[in-house]
Design a protein around this nucleic acid. Sequence first.
RNA 1: GGGCUUGUAGCUCAGUUGGCUAGAGCGCUUGCUUUACACGCAAGAUGUCGGCGGUUCGAGUCCGUCCAGGCCCACCA
Length: 910
Amino acid sequence: MSEIAKAYDPKLVEPKWYQAWLDADAFGGIPDEKKEAFTIVIPPPNVTGVLTMGHVLNNTIQDILVRRARQEGKKALWLPGTDHAGIATHARIERKLRMEGKNRYDLGRETFLKRAWEWSDEHRNIILNQLQKLGSSCDWNRTVFTMDEKYVRAVLTAFVRLYERGYIYRGKYMSKWCPVSLTALSDEEVIMKPQKGLLYKMRYELVEDPGNYLEISTTRPETLMGDTAVAVHPEDSRYNQLIGKHVWRPFPRAELPIIGDEAVDREFGTGVLKVTPAHDEMDFQIGQRHNLPVIDVFNPDATLNDLAGEDFSGVDRFAARKLAVEKLKALGLFIDAEDYENNVGFSERTDVPIEPRISEQWWMRYPKVEEAKSAVENGLIKFYPSRWEKVYLHWLNNIRDWCISRQLWWGHRIPVWYKKGEDRNNKDNWHISVDGPQDPDNWEQEEDVLDTWASSWLWPFATMGWPNPSKEESEDLNFFYPTSDLVTAPDIIFFWVARMIMAGLEFMGPEKKKLATEEIKERIPFQNVYFTGMIRDLQGRKMSKSLGNSPDPLDLIDKFGADGLRFGIMSVAPKGQDILLSDERVEQGRNFCNKLWNACRFRQISGKLEDNSSLDNILSRFEPDLFDEYDHWIVNQLIKAIHQIETGYDNYDFNLMAQGIYNFFWSDYCDWYLEVSKTKLKNESLRDNCLAIQDFILRQVLLTAHPYIPFITEELWHNLGYGDKHSFIQDHCIENSSQLSNQIYQLGIEKDTHLVEAKNIDELQLFIMRARFLKAEYNVANKRDVTFYYSVGEGYDELVDGNIENIKHLVGASNLIACDEAPEGAPAEVTRIGTIYLDLTSAVDVVAEKERLNKELIRLEKQITGSEARLSDVNFLNKAPEKVIQGAREQLATNKTKREEFQKLINNLG
RNA sequence: GGGCUUGUAGCUCAGUUGGCUAGAGCGCUUGCUUUACACGCAAGAUGUCGGCGGUUCGAGUCCGUCCAGGCCCACCA
């Protein structure tokens, strides 16, 4: 065993242990029927991704849960992988192509896919390697990629089954279109943003009444060439007599019917709506109701086409808007334009306004919606924090069909084949299967691929071999499914969480229209969902590349160690609330590691290590007869802290757990117990018992802290001889608080004494702090040879007598002398267990001291008056519980004693 | 427009079923090489618990209302 270095250096520890874990396959998740299963599937990061602070938070939490599960004796599997990220990857590759002056069509599908694969092969492992630096204990042998051959088969199988079960259809409807990616999007991929624009007012001439006009409001004049009607509210008396008549569309000039539709808002603008069924969702619906023709005047890239007229052909939509206004002005049909703010949908990935567009797409009616709701409503799946349940249910209650086809190449190509040369709209000409038709030459496959989320929604079971599991995979699925916890961000609650639940319910069992509760329980993909907060900077701003406020986690790991980063971020991550992170937090995490390191170093320096290889060995060295207040107290504080941690895990209170470990270890153990130890260690008869207690505390602290800070705890575990060469700290089951207390009490250390001891220690510490205060106040804080006198309060003789040496050490005094009479002129402090006087060889400033004591006296008087008032209030005495009244009486009594004492001190000063 | 959420020290957060003098860390001030640790030790200062009203013997905690942030959902052109 080497001597521990003075300052902890994570660089010497972290890579070493990660490699050792990998070499020993310490994270292997193999079914073990003797144990309880604990499973987490990682939210697969995008292949395009690099590690962000969000990943750090998310994966640290998962790692904590998995490591804790191992300590609790469960068989844990944390299954890692990556997502092919359709649009995001497309965007990356196409950007590169643009720089080469090309686009994907120049390359063709096959060449493009080759490049996509190269790119993904090159990037896929970057983020996984970064997760390893963080300490993530995934079973890397089982890493899955959503484009793996097996996974692809799972995705296609799901499609085929849903088609056969009647959930999937193809049709020409309005969907959201991204003019940059040139693909349809699902509703969830569109982000609404308020945009400053103009509300234009124009007029169309009435066909039946030339010279008279109808005034129309619109934000999108560039679509007027696609108008096929003008609509008013049927009960709007201003206009309803015009229904059935016509107006002139100015260009291309055409007669448009005036129709009545209740969707029109009479209050908005002029109350007259131009109806463009091809370019607006509501207009499309109105068009359907009135059998209006649909004129699509846009190209896929949102430039205008020939149908818009010669002037517009090839013009971009925003230029076309200006052009349309110009033309209206020239025709005298433009009235005015006012500033207007409205919400415009943007493509999540490319950040450009989307276009509502009618196209052939594949759609999915969601399966098992009712069951998905009840799974959460009935608590089969629990959300932390629970308020997300409402958001989830609201979405499911208003669920709309899912547009699952994407006009992209990178992804899972839809397993539908059309008979060559035949009508694609006729289902007789379709072939739908995973493997494709027997005579492929006569068929052509659907060009579209599936939405990325239509692959990741299968993640919890497609990663374990569904739908054609090998023998081993069947065991996996049986053992590890349903998974235990899912840790994710709330912004993908619809994209991913809700859909995974529905997929699990639909696929993880035989086909069934309706599921009973028991079946739901077996099929759900996970039991608990923990939603993380969002990481923000100290100004509360979202961390983003453009703001430059997002620290690179790898830099932080380099500077503070992965443990420091993990501990820092977890200590400020309140449940489900946003996290404001700064470097100082991480620094604090690093400091905690250093403190831990040095406390262990102190143990090593203090005395020879005995056999620490088991808890029993350590406890057998306890000498209960030698236990004093401090020994009792620290053991009790430890058990309390461990209990607090246990409750923390039950409630997913990660920051409270971090703070709990921190406070116990730093404030109780290091600040008080270790300091007291220094006097005990000097005393031969107390020495061994004290070292055994230290060994015990440190052992349990290392175990408890291990999920948060896995590297340093592993290192210290071995340094202090808790483990052998052939095992890791995670191989030792952690004792829970009741096990620990039972074992301790069985040694003959009385349970009941703890409460008394704890109270006594509190009083003792107060006494010591007041003495230190006197030293600081009289500028002798740095002297260790001062003399104190003291008189003991009633009932505390034994406590003070037994702790003289401890008090002397903790205060920094050479003499502590009992006295009956207050020494003349000595500044003093009054506490419950006694009055303490600082002996000053030089004269004290009597006036200043008197003033100080008087201030104290006044404060006391105020409290006494308050207490007396309460205690003489009949209502209070009648209605308050006895405990509270008793408490108030005790406080009053203590304060009165103190007041007397202060009075005496002031009198003594003359 | 609907819903969710937050407001406690300069900053980030605790504060259990209402009950003693509202706590912690960071930061700040002062002093300190004390048998681990300056990534440290000790002492100290700092609060209209967002505002107002109510219930209660008693409110940071419960109720109402208002104010201010943040987020999500929604077809008003």
